[in-house]
């Protein structure tokens, strides 16, 4: 979807900035906001570009660099850590051949950390796009990833 169509859904009020960024970033297959788009959004809302940039750098959901089609987020906080016998991050890193904060060469996956996902009773957990996967084991992680690979 192009940015103009998304912008038209929102009133020209500066309190709409975060909603617009969330909406547009998730609609884009590489999930990031480019320099040109920052200018376009700032123009639409009548605010300085610096204001858009300050929001983009503050919230962890936003990226100003291209990311993969699927964003994998691994919880790094205490409840998941103590619920797990395995190193979730290591398994995904090995499986995808990338390190955390990197994107696979085919632009399919980006691996990130996330703060607590509020699923501490079913940990360890990870999130792929908007979906949360619980009770992770090494086999389960491999199965989930291969599902995403098939649907590439």
């Amino acid at each position: 979807m192009i940015l103009k169509e998304i912008l038209q859904k929102y009133p020209k009020k500066d309190d709409q900035l975060i909603e617009i960024l969330l909406d547009y970033q998730s609609a884009k297959s590489n999930h990031y906001i480019s320099k040109e788009e920052i200018i376009e959004i700032a123009d639409y809302l009548g605010i300085p570009e610096s204001k858009v940039c300050s929001v983009l750098s503050f919230y962890t959901f936003f990226s100003v660099k291209p990311r993969g089609k699927h964003i994998i987020q691994v919880c790094k906080d205490v409840p998941c850590y103590v619920s797990s016998n395995i190193d979730i991050l290591k398994i995904i890193e090995t499986e995808l051949g990338i390190l955390v904060n990197e994107t696979t060469p085919n632009q399919q996956f980006t691996l990130e950390f996330t703060s607590c996902l509020g699923c501490c009773d079913v940990g360890p957990v990870m999130r792929i796009n908007d979906k949360i996967y619980t009770h992770l084991t090494a086999d389960k992680i491999k199965a989930i990833l291969s599902e995403y690979r098939v649907n590439m």
């Binding site: 703060s115 607590c116 509020g118 699923c119």
Partner: peptide, 11 residues
Amino acid sequence: DEGEPGNFKDR
């Protein structure tokens, strides 16, 4: 905005 690690009752 339940973000405190270990809390999930609001969810």
